[in-house]
Design a protein around this nucleic acid. Structure first.
Lengths: 260, 260
DNA sequence: CGTCACATTGATGTCTGTCAAGAATCGTGG
DNA sequence: CCACGATTCTTGACAGACATCAATGTGACG
């Protein structure tokens, strides 16, 4: 565990960017300075509403948020999960009014940053610009993988794949252990992520549990044999575009609270 | 029909960007100069292969291309259709090896541009930078809409929605009329876009035809009543983030060949 | 003219949705 | 602390959407 995580609670963005870029201490200091938690949200509280014009950029510091759309007669499709270190809308200025919603899933803290401060940052430091760009491109890549999953995988593999992803993504920001991580998703939420009904989610989770692939307890996911679960759902990390694998340490999870 | 389309064949990128940015004649000249057709591809020929490192940037000038992934035991999911004016991989340098394939769907012509020429362009002209950025963000937005469609819409509405999108997107680049457009997609292709079997595609197309919603002939789509089709599948253009609606002209389709 | 991909249709099976009813969990207020 | 309602979670019976298997027809192309 290196110096970046030494202080009381590391900035998840900085942790994440270790896997997409090589930043020096100066870069990290700039990021830490710009992206600090400055708002706490209740579960279900909106961060961005469809039709809103961008006001600034939001970064999740702690907790989960999610992106969603309402189609047809009120059915909700969840388009992405935003974990600590993820941007909600880095690029929204260019697009105009948002075409979807973003809301807090759990209680969470976010950083609100004015667009011009981002612009100044990336203008000044092209390595940082590239790092942030990497982050948004990974988000898009995840979206493609979700689409492929939705189109081609059966419900059980889809859930398993999602769990593999969430375990790994949380490991990247030091929020998960080797084999378990927070999983604050209700079954109705899972249903809207996977495009199936909550009833079916329940059935499939039972099957996965009984197959010994996963354990769920206290809103946490435990995976007894990560290799086996990955195998089951054909999980391949390449869509996350990591330049290095996460250390295999049994990391802090839930988020680090210990002081030095 | 304005001056941009006056010459023998307008650059589809320039046409498309009319809907996302305000470019002046100088901007357009730069684009036209940079993105000119310089390669012809056979149907099914690869443009980008998964695992490839980026060599440059590719823009579709004419014809259709498509993005796809292979999941599990060889099932293909098509992740996006690339129409004239669409970039294949504007940003691939940052991400490293591609995690998916891009191939020509029909015979098509593409522009190959070295990354540094793009960089020089966007560095020099921030309005153009913003315009290109808009284009990539719209692509991502389309991806989200596809995901929502896959998760929440039934097969018939999914096809209808896709057809609405393809009609409109081709109108943006002057490749479609008010109510019809090229549709060079076989049923196996449609199946891999929609995540259903070709057999089911055949049945659903029959139903849509018999409901009078669409007509298919000679690899073209004809929509007798666009409003009705849009209504049927809950099509809302906002995810395409157009700053203006396409003119209601009965535009050139197939691509303009007439000389002034 | 044969081959091959595409397209169509029917019969049948499987996955997932719908309807219905309970049980467990959780937050809240008395 | 307990009661309460509200949300989750679970299970069963049944229905519908879509997949699979099989057969046939069509058209492009060598």
């Amino acid at each position: 565990m290196d110096a970046t995580v030494a202080h009381h609670r590391a900035n998840p963005l900085i942790l994440k960017l270790r896997y997409g870029a090589d930043l020096d201490a100066g870069d990290r200091a700039l990021l830490a300075d710009l992206f600090r938690a400055d708002r706490v949200l209740e579960p279900q509280q909106d961060i961005v509403r469809a039709g809103d014009r961008a006001t600034g950029v939001h970064l999740v510091i702690e907790g989960f948020a999610f992106r969603y759309k309402i189609v047809g007669d009120g059915q909700r499709q969840i388009l992405g999960l935003l974990l600590p270190g993820d941007f909600c809308d880095l690029q929204s200025v260019v697009l105009g009014p948002s075409d979807h919603y973003i809301a807090a899933l759990t209680a969470c803290t976010v950083a609100d940053v004015a667009q011009d401060r981002i612009d100044a940052l990336v203008f000044r430091d092209s390595r940082l610009a590239r790092a942030l760009w990497w982050a948004t491109l990974v988000d898009e890549s995840i979206l493609r993988e979700w689409l492929a999953s939705m189109g081609q995988r059966s419900a059980d593999k889809r859930i398993a794949h999602l769990f593999c992803e969430l375990l790994l993504r949380q490991q990247l920001v030091g929020a998960a252990g080797k084999r378990d991580c927070p999983l604050p998703l209700t079954q109705p939420m899972l249903a809207d992520i996977l495009g199936i009904t909550t009833i079916h989610v329940s059935r499939v989770l039972r099957d996965l549990r009984m197959a010994g692939l996963i354990q769920l307890k206290d809103r946490r996911l435990h995976v007894p044999d990560v290799r086996r679960l990955r195998n089951f759902c054909d999980f391949d990390t390449s869509y996350l575009h990591l330049v290095r694998e996460p250390d295999d340490q049994d990391a802090a999870s839930p988020p680090i609270r210990a002081r030095p």
